[in-house]
Design a protein around this nucleic acid. Structure first.
Lengths: 187, 187, 187, 187
DNA sequence: TATGAATGAGTGTTCATTCAT
DNA sequence: GATGAATGAACACTCATTCAT
């Protein structure tokens, strides 16, 4: 049954989608029962697809990161200036995060370290490049810039997730505030 | 024993300090046992001081917010321009947050709503004032600016808490990035 | 599986039976762990069937009272003289109490007030009827007679539960002592 | 300090009195804290007088039984007929039980076995004597008569404790029902 | 001596996970 | 393959009891 693996993949993806939503809504205190119910399956069935809570979370993380990976790869970051690269990255991250409600991905929690590094890397790289090329201010260490950027992104995504902002608007706001700050010309 | 109440207050404060650290580190999954152990007391003793988990969290929230309240009051925000006000607020928030590891304060979770509003209010106010007075860009709604600001602050504080940055440095970075962005003049 | 609900009901009833015994033996200090162990299930399983201690006690109460209700209804009390009614009631109460070890039912403790009233009512009624009809002594208020009757029944049931007496013997003893006292004719 | 032991005895007696009340009201679920508070002393002080819960209960039991013992001794049971003996015993038991709220004394629970036996003995003895002498019905075993008697007494005492009946009335009702039953002559 | 403080051993309850159908 | 049932390992909280002042 060639179809089997495909079917299973579909169910898996569906569960992951639901799980992402539930975890985003109820936070880490969402129980497996909550997720199973929301997904319309029995708890034991949920365990058939993901043999443990960790496995589920890891799968969720990987899916989100894979999605993000694709978007970043598509962005051809090296072909544009660092600020445009930041703009593209921001759009990619906002879109992926919104898609998977996976805000927490940036945290230290869950496995998938290699994958995560593969993704956080480009972000870091672009900022470092910008500093190196003199486009970004050098008075703040790149690490800090990166941390602040992550913060802004989380703030912007939270606006998207609460429905107060569209993904495009949020991306623009994040990008422009990070790049240009909030003051008017007069500064 | 006049000292008694003071002594108790000291122990209480000590436990709160430890609890703040533990909760910041392990998150909501830190158990009362964890906190008690970290504080060097038996679980039952912890319950002597805070009769329930909620009471502990609430006390923690209130202590942190009261601390922050004092700092903000001291800052005389209305007597300076919005950007200087932001600078002072940032310093106050970073210091208080670092002191109490109370990152979560900005979240929606725990009670103490009135107090929290009393504190989030000034932040919001300053941003709105800045927009109104033409110091801050008007192309991004104040709400969004506020959310992004919250995000940057969280990012900066995380740097402080991990020891990679001093409070003063972090405050400066947060402020300057929020106000001026990351691009060099050439933009 | 039509059987499923029935099976669950059987298990429930079994647990209730055991719980009644344990609670009767160890009193209110019997823990849920005690009950679960006695029932041969894990504590968590006990909670599957009765989500809280209160729920268990309430279910137990209701089962016993329902049983007693049936027996009393079957007794057609109004069709016989008060003393025969007392005899029948006594047999019903002894049997039901023995069955469910539910001595405590007569206490004030647990919910199921309406049901309880439906059951204590007939007892009270028969005694009052007996007094009204001149069959029972009028020099003792019906309330008191009722209280004494309850006491005798509890005494008799304790004999049954400790195995020193059969239900039928106990019922007869209770009835005859209550109705005729312990003195020989000569009185 | 000769007075010391006397003073201590007074405090002890006072605590016992309060403890009897509290235990009667709240049952076995009354905590040491409850008792200490009701007695107006700190928990630790309560423990100074009674080094454990069991010790307190045992002391309470012994006090009640000693009181009862005195009353029974005063009753000169052997000098009167069994039915009069029952009447006197009933008055003694009701009074003592009411005094100490010590209904539970008849139970199997707490130590003080020898003392208890010294007291339950006379009750049993009188009933057996009554049977032997042909005053009490012989168709019910003395053990059972005794159990039923205990039940009636408990029922009557509960009326006294709830204030619905005076001790004298209750004693009379208990005695006459036990001896003569509830039916009118016509039986 | 009297007491506030500290604590170990439970209790009720929940939840992730396994098993039998 | 899907599910209801069962369970062990926590967790929040309580209480009888001990200790230091």
């Amino acid at each position: 049954m060639v179809k089997n693996s495909t079917l299973r993949a579909h169910v898996e993806a569906g569960i992951l989608r639901v799980a992402a939503t539930v975890l985003a809504e109820r936070g880490d205190k969402a129980s497996m029962a909550d997720i199973a119910t929301a997904a319309g399956v029995a708890r034991a069935t949920l365990y058939r697809y993901f043999p443990s809570r960790d496995a589920l979370v890891k799968a969720l993380t990987e899916a989100a990161l894979a999605d993000l990976h694709d978007r970043i790869t598509d962005a051809r970051l090296d072909e544009v200036a660092p600020d445009e690269a930041i703009a593209r990255l921001t759009r990619a991250v906002v879109a992926a995060t919104h898609e998977y409600r996976a805000l927490a991905l940036f945290g230290e929690e869950h496995g998938a370290e290699e994958l995560k590094e593969r993704l956080l890397g480009p972000l870091r790289d672009q900022i470092e490049r910008g500093v190196r090329e003199g486009r970004f201010r050098a008075d703040i260490p790149p690490d800090v810039l990166f941390a602040l950027y992550r913060g802004i992104v989380e703030g912007g995504v939270s606006q998207v997730m609460s429905g107060r902002l569209g993904a495009e608007q949020a991306s623009a706001a994040i990008t422009t505030v990070f790049l240009n700050g909030t003051l008017t010309e007069a500064t």
